[in-house]
Design a binder for these strands. Structure first.
Lengths: 215, 215
DNA sequence: ATTTATTTTTAGACAAAACTAAAAATAAAA
DNA sequence: TTTTATTTTTAGTTTTGTCTAAAAATAAAT
């Protein structure tokens, strides 16, 4: 599998989670910053390799083989992110790009040894689950902070949006995975929340609350 | 710089150490397992990018820019090898191939953080020196075991040949970097050595002694 | 149920990095 | 110093992954 093929498989995997009936050409092109015609070409190749099932104009889905490949790529990406943050001291907004490269390193032995070295983590620095060596993904129970009842306490377990801007905002507000969040009040008009995070009172917009997972 | 370009630069660097006046096309082709014509094509490209100085039929040398790039690739390769052995528990005969991939990961910040994480090692698992962030290579004093006086003690600091076969032989004989080697006797006829390694008496062919560095 | 708009696919072209086969330059040998 | 052998380069293809522009299929709107 080439790097390009792996990138397509990965993108189809992520899009499948939202549209499991079939991923359309334009969506893939958008994610990969390429043209629809290039996607069509690649779908033929991936179909020949039995990684996707594809019929003209009908969108694509991953085959079992494709799904497994996708999970292994995601596994590598997320394990490398853990390594970068936990061992090398990168911050969580810096690791995605580097992991995009590292995820294409081939050795299976490498990734399993890395997994062990990191202590078999179940989630990456953004709270996303890490598939195990067999591709099994342990589901992480979580709710959006925007959908949680008032006056209860949770801890922060992940982010939905992992853009640099959002992560830097969280850093600025000293919100990290593991932080204790208590919802004090919710404004009816615009759903702005008043919360207490690690003891500190804070006002949070609905957009923020809608991108923060708690448990 | 593409992966292919980096591989050419690296090979030219290694060949330059042996033939500093200019590296010939066929030698490069041999190392990269490609054809001379492909090498010629690439030399033009690298020359346009001011990474090598190249004139038809006269061989190539690295420019300052090319030399620096080469050292950075070697730096990455060797630091990743240290990581694989020291942190992930690979044996020294398993790491070359994986490091061949890892050496092409782009981030400079990554490699400097990795360097710090590993404690700024000066040599890789085979005893080869690791260029620092500026490209400076600390020369490691060493002699071949085959060229050393009798009845003196040394410690093993590196291998000249790092092929799997040789490394596995060393493992079998329990010879590792750091082992204490004392030359007891040398056979005049075929230069076979009788040595004591970490206290154990051993007979070693000239070929072996000729690929083991001591200090 | 047509027409219009959007999406997707085809067809043909291009750049990168490789190849083969033939030509040219250099080196070695007679 | 010619001749022969070797090395290197050129010229022309191939493959991979991309592109543009045009055609075809599907979806949306009148």
């Amino acid at each position: 599998m080439t790097i390009s093929e792996e990138n397509y498989i990965k993108v189809i995997y992520h899009l499948s989670l939202v549209s499991p009936k079939g991923v359309n050409t334009n969506a893939i092109a958008g994610m990969l910053d390429t043209k629809a015609s290039s996607v069509t070409d690649m779908m033929k190749k991936l179909s020949d390799k039995d990684l996707v099932s594809y019929q003209k104009y009908q969108g694509v889905t991953l085959t079992d083989k494709g799904l497994h490949s996708a999970k292994m790529i995601v596994r590598k990406h997320r394990l490398w992110e853990v390594f970068l943050v936990d061992k090398l001291g990168f911050s969580w907004d810096e690791v995605h790009e580097i992991a995009e490269e590292l995820e294409h390193i081939k050795s299976e032995q490498l990734i399993n040894k890395l997994d062990a070295f990191l202590g078999f983590p179940v989630a990456d620095p953004h709270g996303d689950p890490i598939p195990d060596a067999k591709g099994v993904i342990k589901k992480i129970e979580k709710q959006l902070l925007s959908e949680v009842e008032i006056n209860a306490s949770f801890h922060c377990v992940g982010v939905k949006d992992s853009s640099t801007d959002f992560l830097k905002y969280l850093d600025k507000q000293k919100i990290a995975l593991g932080s204790i969040v208590k919802v004090i009040d919710k404004e009816d008009f615009d759903d702005t929340l008043t919360v207490e995070i690690d003891g500190k009172r804070l006002t949070i917009s609905n957009k923020i609350a809608n991108n923060l997972y708690v448990q």
